Simulated scan of single mutants.
Amino acid sequence: MMLNNVYIKLLGTIVMSIGLMVILFLSSEEQVHRNNAFIRRFPPHPVIKEYDIDLGFNSYYVAGLGKDMVYLGNSTAPLHLLKINLATRDTAHVKLKLSNTDLPFKNVHVQVQPPFFFVLDGSIPYIFRGSTNNWVAGPWMRNEAYFTKSLVLDSNRIYIKTMQNDTRTVTLGLLEKRDHFSVELHPEILQRQIDGVFDVDGIMLTTPDKTRLGYVYFYRNQFMTMDSRLKTLKRQQTIDTVKKARIEIAQLDRSKTSKMKSPPLVVNTKATMYKNFMFIASDRLGKNENREILKVASIIDVYNWSDATYRYSFYLYHMGKEKVHGFSVNDGRLVALIDNALSVYNFREGFVDHTPYGEQENITGQ
Rank of each mutant, 00 (worst) to 15 (best):
96 L>C: 04
323 K>G: 10
262 S>L: 12
273 M>G: 01
299 I>Q: 08
52 D>P: 02
343 S>M: 01
62 V>Y: 01
266 V>K: 13
85 N>Y: 00
159 Y>C: 00
260 M>P: 03
296 V>Y: 13
45 H>Q: 11
320 G>T: 09
147 F>T: 07
141 M>G: 02
216 V>N: 04
144 E>I: 15
204 M>N: 08
358 G>R: 06
139 P>Q: 06
326 G>Y: 08
158 I>W: 14
167 T>P: 09
328 S>H: 14
33 H>T: 12
361 E>F: 10
203 I>G: 03
348 R>E: 08
135 W>F: 09
13 T>C: 14
21 M>W: 14
259 K>S: 15
338 I>V: 14
97 K>H: 11
219 Y>D: 00
54 D>C: 02
150 S>F: 06
101 T>S: 12
149 K>C: 06
145 A>R: 13
278 M>T: 07
47 V>S: 03
184 E>L: 13
49 K>M: 10
233 L>C: 06
267 V>I: 10
133 N>E: 11
319 M>G: 09
247 I>S: 07
193 Q>M: 07
69 M>N: 12
192 R>S: 09
227 D>P: 05
291 R>Q: 11
81 L>P: 03
35 N>E: 11
315 Y>R: 10
65 L>Y: 14
270 K>N: 13
337 L>W: 07
33 H>M: 08
349 E>N: 12
139 P>A: 05
327 F>I: 03
324 V>P: 01
248 E>P: 08
328 S>Y: 08
322 E>W: 10
73 G>S: 00
353 D>W: 00
207 T>L: 02
74 N>M: 00
223 F>M: 02
73 G>R: 00
338 I>G: 02
84 I>Q: 04
171 T>N: 07
2 M>W: 15
123 S>P: 04
248 E>H: 14
314 F>S: 01
162 T>M: 05
189 I>M: 07
28 S>T: 14
355 T>H: 08
35 N>H: 06
207 T>W: 03
170 V>A: 15
270 K>Q: 14
245 A>E: 00
236 Q>S: 09
126 Y>S: 11
87 A>K: 15
10 L>S: 09
178 R>K: 15
157 R>L: 06
273 M>C: 00
328 S>K: 15
164 Q>Y: 10
180 H>F: 03
137 A>M: 04
347 F>I: 02
155 S>N: 08
361 E>A: 13
128 F>Y: 14
95 K>T: 15
345 Y>W: 04
197 V>T: 10
249 I>P: 06
175 L>I: 11
359 E>F: 11
148 T>A: 07
19 G>I: 05
108 V>I: 13
222 Q>I: 00
69 M>H: 08
86 L>H: 04
